[in-house]
Design a protein around this nucleic acid. Structure first.
Lengths: 331, 331
DNA sequence: ATGAAAGCGCTAACAG
DNA sequence: CTGTTAGCGCTTTCAT
């Protein structure tokens, strides 16, 4: 492997000079500069990132930790970040926490070895899991989707998202309503929203479902729905809000299998607005995912470069996208 | 940052010994070993990957280069590889070539700096783009989806995939048939398959469409379809095969917008069998994506560890999944 | 079984 | 403006 020394020798300059022209850290005589550049080209020299990182004490990798890359919502985030990183000359180490807090914790442990420039994280529930080590090691972090008290973050306001759907359902005349998902902020917004419109979301109609990973999600959704049916004989609601679009799709599938018509018998709404919901015409709440990812990246860069440690939370308002799964022929 | 030297000092051993217990390279007295382990725990020591890589001349990162992470087919590949890599103690640097050969080339250039253990690549069309530098630098490579003469690879047989669909269309009684996509192996298989069944695939019904990136894919599909319409007034076929599932979805959308019924007026079939096709009941050709990714990773590991340079091509047979978009009420 | 020491390829004072 | 030099944190002979 050709190294800097080889370039220096052939260009008849010192290694330091080669380093200078590569990094543009200091002014180098144009002639010398060109000569070095030529030799680099000729020899096909490539810096050794490991050596560079070790010596300069900074790396050019950004770690991206996401719960489920098979969910197009997160895939889109990775898409944006990889693209931005590429344009800024950084590399992305991608890690999939798979909705598993234990794995998330190990991933963060692991990533510390690489001393990344920063990490973009779409965290699972338990803040304890990730914050401590990251803070200790002074690694800039920006979260997406959930806001953390220790780091900057970008997210839609999930409560408002839930409220939007509550209003939508009530305006459509629904009185018996269901929910399937975990009891997060959008659930709270949904429940509170309904309450403020004098509709009670019964506990028994809130089907607990916690599953970030889309592998086996069908089985998971089907089994929790079957469990509900076993207990209550029939679905005691005319509209249901699901934790995310993938779950919505599975719920619709399940209903179809059971001969339940959507939206005539039961209306279904999802969350995220992944592109596939438009093909299926599923009502959902839009998260401007590309914007979220972009802002997160931008903020991370700012903190990494300036060393600014101020915590900034950016909140974006979600938007309701009504489609056929709640209102027939909406289109 | 606590380093090996700190551990060595506190454990009252040499730095070399600490290195030994961490890497298990040589036998270390159990007592000493335990003492070192305790200190590591106590101090929260983490190796510095850069230093390790520089010193040992081997890294623990695997580069994954894919054309479009927003396409669930590729997202699934990344999912599998990240997971396998994690379990084997490796990190994944992810790069999105975005269907852009120029970017793919630059990405490969870039990745060389990191001296990755290996690269898993789903290449675009031009082999020249990627093979040379990778070979020069002796980096193990396994391709997926396309087989390269210079590297090992895993792929379904695309020709057979195209033939499968040809048979399917003909058995359904179609005689006027269309194609939208780029003219790759599956196109050849499709065309030849039709020919062998005495059906001619007219050139004018082969709509050229080259677009790996799913951003703006809607516009791209719509405009090429509009262009066809402008020229021919109406669609002169009763069945169309699309390059991949995403394109199939857009085509179906387009037809719906135009009041064309699928499959009654025109049958549509895709390629890949991404999970969303099942929700939409789109006929497609299944690529066992998880298996492909797994085999590619496995093969890469083998080559990276053993230094085995033998080129092995694994070909998997695709499977037709007939659904409602070609045969109503198939389910 | 363990320690000493050289060196991986690069950056960053420092000196001139 | 450019060369010299001292590390960065770790692995790996080579001794003992």
């Amino acid at each position: 492997m050709v190294k800097m020394k080889d370039v220096a020798l052939k260009a008849e300059v010192s290694q330091a000079t080669v380093s200078r022209v590569i990094n543009g850290s200091t002014y180098v005589e144009p002639y010398t500069r060109q000569k070095v550049l030529d030799v680099i080209e000729e020899l096909g020299y490539k810096v050794n990132s490991a050596a560079k990182a070790l010596s300069s004490k900074k790396s050019s990798v950004i770690a991206v930790i996401l719960p489920d890359i098979s969910n197009p919502y997160f895939a889109e985030i990775l898409n944006v970040i990889e693209n931005e990183a590429y344009q800024s000359g950084y590399k992305v180490i991608f890690m999939n926490s798979q909705g598993n807090e234990h794995k998330e914790k190990k991933l963060i442990d692991n990533i510390l070895k690489y001393k990344p420039l920063g990490v973009v994280l779409s965290p699972l529930d338990d803040e304890e899991n990730y914050s401590k080590k990251l803070i200790e090691n002074k690694i800039p972090v920006v979260t997406m989707g959930k806001l953390s008290q220790n780091f900057s973050g970008v997210s839609i306001n999930h409560k408002v998202g839930g409220e939007l759907l509550a209003k939508h359902f009530v305006s459509l005349g629904h009185e018996k309503i269901g929910y399937i998902g975990n009891k997060d902020d959008k659930f709270k917004g949904f429940k509170d929203g309904l309450a403020s419109l004098n509709v009670n979301l019964k506990d028994e109609n809130c089907i607990d479902f916690y599953n970030y990973s889309s592998i086996n999600i069908k089985e998971a959704v089907y089994s929790s729905l079957e469990k509900y049916l076993k207990k209550h004989k029939k679905f005691d609601f005319t509209a249901i809000f699901t934790g995310n679009d993938i779950v919505a799709m599975e719920v619709i599938n399940f209903f179809r299998d059971k001969g339940i018509k959507v939206p005539e018998d039961i209306a279904v709404a999802g969350f995220d607005n992944i592109s596939f919901t438009s093909y299926l015409s599923i009502t959902t709440v839009a998260q401007p995912v590309r914007e979220i990812a972009f802002l997160a990246f931008e903020r991370l860069m700012m903190e990494a470069k300036s060393g600014n440690k101020e915590i900034k939370h950016i909140e974006i308002l979600p938007r309701l996208i009504p489609r056929d799964s709640t209102v027939k022929f909406f289109k």
